[in-house]
Amino acid sequence: MLLIHCPYCDEARAEIEFAYAGEAHIARPPDPAALSDEDWTHYLFIRSNPRGRHHERWRHIHGCGRFFNAVRETVSDKFEVTYKAGEPRR
C-alpha cells in the first residue's frame, strides 16, 4: 500500500485514503467542437503509459477531497513529488 503525500493536507497518508484519477496534465480542450476526430480521440484515450516517470492525478477522497498531481516512477512505484492541481508540470 503506497504512502502518499497530500499537498493540501501536507501529510503522508495510506493509499486507501486516495483514489487514482489517471494521467495528469491532460486538459480538456477549451473548444472541443473545433477539434478533429483524431485530436478529440487523442484527448479522450491516448495516454503516455510510460515505463518511468509518470505524471498522474490522485484525489484525497477520504480526506480533504482535493485532486492533486504527482510524479511517480512506474517501475519502482516510488513518488518523486506531489503538488497541487494547477501548479506547473514538474
Partner: peptide, 13 residues
C-alpha cells in the same frame, strides 16, 4: 459527485 468534483476542481477551478 466524484465526476463533478473532478471537473470543478481541475477543469474549471
Amino acid at each position: 459527485l466524484n465526476m463533478m468534483e473532478d471537473y470543478l476542481q481541475t477543469e474549471w477551478p
